[in-house]
Design a protein around this nucleic acid. Structure first.
Lengths: 193, 193, 193, 193
DNA sequence: GATGAATGAGGATTCATTCAT
DNA sequence: GATGAATGAATCCTCATTCAT
């Protein structure tokens, strides 16, 4: 097998197709044959990699969340001052959302779903806790407002939801300008400046 | 028939049950018999009031959105200064969300759904446009930041999404304190003060 | 109630509507609400006159068959010679079919149906026996061919089936000419001339 | 898989079961699970071969009609004299009806049905036109009566309908005698001898 | 390993029948 | 008597899952 498009493993192709479909028609609105068709595999093949449809959505959820959480942390160190850390965190989130709109839609469509298992819920909490933790440390230093950290995190995370739904990052430059404006607005919202 | 809980018309009972179920299990994850059971009607009865399941979700969506949009406008007048108008708008939104968590979840779970018809989309746009319009007028007076108004609206609307998912308004007093804190944070985010 | 269109009893209106619908969409393809609508009565009203849908189709079948059988006998006497009796019988059948196409279609669509009860089957047999009997008497006199009388009756009755389906008696005169031609052809088929 | 009864393809088994059931209980009176049970397949399997129940009845109708029409033509050539051609045509029809009673019932139960599509109607017309054409050529030579050819065709085709319903070809010899008698009677009806 | 035909449980929807008004 | 809203059993059809190839 050459190292081209072909060597995307079938499992990855399935996960990719599932992400695309789940993010637009929801879990229950997407069928296994549809996923198989988009992934270019037989329907039965999906069951070679996943025990069930629920297993598939959970594995996908964990992958997406862990990937997102990892992205959030890129370039952050404990020694940075609060504003700088926020800058990195916010930009990491923004860039992830812009480059993985479907993944972000998928997260927000499913984060409360009944079919998520413990592992999925834990992955979601980890992401959320990570943001909250950063907020908390800033609050401890008196640089961020003192409220339930998850509440403050909502001020950072929340605006990205409608934005991910309604803004297409056609224009890279505009996107960077918007990113900067949003970062500043968010900082004003949560900082004690 | 006593004039109490009993004489809620069947149609309203169905819509209420549908809202409850759709907001927790999504449209495709909810079955008609389930809705019928929760609404305390026969499954066939649903089809006396709605042509199809899609028709039901659309009528529900329009009702919820129009209700929400109406709530947003309570007490606002053109003569108010921008800060006061924002205060009312924000509090109207907050109170609606706290008192109608399922409705708000339902909106955010379905606003991009493929089964929404034109009428539903229009109702959603109307709500969104209303917020954007208020933002625009504030920007014209130089009191709110000058960005795409829908982008700014995301700063107001967006945080309510994770909050509606993760905070239960058990404590009325706490809720009021949070509302005030969030209002101020949001104002800092979008104002040019 | 004036003696106009109004005093068609509801029962008759129901039977009329049922005949019209059953003859075009079959028993199982016709719904009670449809019959009610065509008959201009409430669906529940049908159950005031008929125990069930099966009861309705059976009562209709008996009425139609008995009416048809009666029509066949108009003007026939035992003293007539075979040719004359045949002439009357044939013309009675022809006229009935032309004036009651739906009734005749209804008969031929249902004569073997599993939902017919004994009374209905008996009414059908009576009609068929009547034709067969006439054939038998002609055969006894040596004027008609000697075969199983029901077989011979098929030569008389059978051609009317495709004719009822495919010829509309728009043209009364043409119809009379066809009637005469068909009568003669049928006579040649079954007579020993 | 042995090359016997087993390797009748599932599609054929479904068509066979459908023919059997449709000819006795009509299209609307037959359920998909019933067909599946008789065909010895799962209900869902039917939808692998047919888009819908209507699609099934139409494909069956076309197959039956085309098969019948083909049978009618066996052994006929243009050079034959009219009587000989009639002999073949009639016997082909008779044999088809006796050996495929259900198919013939099915035709006559459905030829005017609202659920038939254009292709089905065309197949039916083709059969009917074929008989009419033979009649017309005989009429042109002055050997058959001069009437609307479809009307004359009714004299040939029509008697087979009640016969197919009421005579079982238990007795092969009797059947042949009846065939001969019916052929002669029909010939007398339509010829100018 | 990969496939997709086959399955039947389950879903949306219809409709014969009932019954309160 | 007449109605039609209400019902839930039954229908068509879909789809997650299995398994023979």
């Amino acid at each position: 097998m050459p190292e081209t498009i072909k060597n995307i493993s079938k499992k990855d192709a399935i996960l990719k197709a599932a992400l695309q479909l789940f993010s637009h028609r929801s879990f229950d609105g997407t069928t296994i044959p549809e996923i198989a068709r988009v992934a270019n595999v037989g329907a039965g093949t999906i069951y070679r990699y996943f025990i069930s449809k629920e297993d598939l959505v959970n594995e996908l959820f964990v992958r997406v969340l862990d990937d997102f959480t990892e992205h959030l942390q890129v370039g952050l160190h404990g020694q940075m001052d609060t504003r700088t850390r926020f800058h990195h965190l916010f930009n990491n989130a923004w860039n992830y959302v812009m480059n993985n709109v479907e993944a972000f839609l998928f997260i927000n469509l499913n984060d409360e779903a009944t079919y998520l298992n413990d592992r999925s819920r834990k992955s979601f909490s980890r992401m959320w806790d990570y943001i909250a933790e950063m907020v908390e440390q800033g609050a401890d230093k008196g640089e961020l407002i003192k409220l339930d950290p998850k509440f403050v995190a909502s001020l950072v995370y929340g605006p990205l939801i409608p934005i991910s739904k309604r803004f297409n990052n056609d224009n890279r430059q505009a996107s960077q300008a918007l990113a900067k404006a949003l970062e500043e607005a968010t900082w004003r919202a949560i900082s004690t400046d």
